[in-house]
């Protein structure tokens, strides 16, 4: 599939450092920040189990 990234208007999604969100906004580009929190209290094992259940369901 051909990637049209260089031809279309680009929107940015930021997950993580808020400063990266700020600098994209400052450049005038459309950007949405995801106020991300670790799921399942950050328990990686539990996250895997939940993901597996979701895939099955």
């Amino acid at each position: 599939m051909e990637n049209k990234l260089f031809e279309e208007k680009m929107s940015v999604i930021n997950l993580g450092l808020p400063s990266f969100f700020e600098s994209v906004k400052d450049q005038g580009a459309p950007c949405v920040h995801v106020d991300w929190r670790p799921p399942a209290g950050g328990d990686v094992r539990l996250i895997e189990i939940l993901d597996r259940l979701r895939e099955l369901g």
Binding site: M10, S11, V12, I13, P30, V32
Partner: peptide
Amino acid sequence: VDGAKLAVV
């Protein structure tokens, strides 16, 4: 968002 999407993670 619309147009081409790029995520910074």
